[in-house]
Amino acid sequence: MSLLHTRNLTAFYGDFQALFGINFAVDSGETVAIIGANGAGKSTFLRSLTGLLINDADAIRFKGKAIGALPANHIVGAGIAMVPEGRKLFPSLSVEENLKIGNYSGREGPWSVERIMDLFPFMRQRRHNPGAALSGGQQQMVAIGRALMSNPDLLLCDEISLGLAPTVIKDIYDTLPAIQETGTTVVVVEQDIQQAMAVADRVYCFMEGRVTLEGPPGNLSHDAIREAYFGLKGAV
């Protein structure tokens, strides 16, 4: 049985429909990447999973429970944590406080402030700095650490490579195995197709609020991806 799956998930902003019946599944232990252009509905999909957009309860099932109608503040307690796009550190909290608030839900598990700092050693010196005083890559690491602090079963990473230098992106993705070792399943949303293909066991491609392609990276041809990503048929 899959860890999380959605059935015919839709989402609206007022009259505007952003998602049209998304069927999505992720198994425990596998790494899934969601790719798609700007406005394809990737972030809306994550907002739905995390309860920032409310759905029918049955549209999203997580560990067998219908969670589609749970508000955001109950989702993290159920075991889904999110690294939001743009990091979204709390500017008036220090690095350490940002991490600690990640465990506001009180879920128990392997992660602690000290263990996060083992994973990202730079934090030890910056412990009491405000989150906003860090570089972009460091902020991204704090955001990941903050999400891990809730000891999630499922970690959703929204565009974690956005705006970062290639070496920094590599550093961040290099920590994924250590995270998965603790039993956390990872879903990454990426605009960078290469990056997504490199880390994922399976890829979903979104376009205009629909899933246009799904499968293991090895099985997907460049043309198929291009068509699913840009909607260009046969174009070069």
């Binding site: 995390t50 309860g51 920032l52 508000p71 955001a72 503040n73 109950h74 989702i75 993290v76 307690g77 944590a81 999110m82 939001p84 979204k88 709390f90 500017p91 008036s92 909290l93 608030i101 990640g102 506001y104 839900s105 903050r146 809730s150």
Partner: peptide, 12 residues
């Protein structure tokens, strides 16, 4: 700072 992100932390 950010009510939406705070909700993601489990804060009501």
């Amino acid at each position: 700072d950010d009510p939406d992100t705070a909700r993601l932390m489990g804060i009501d």
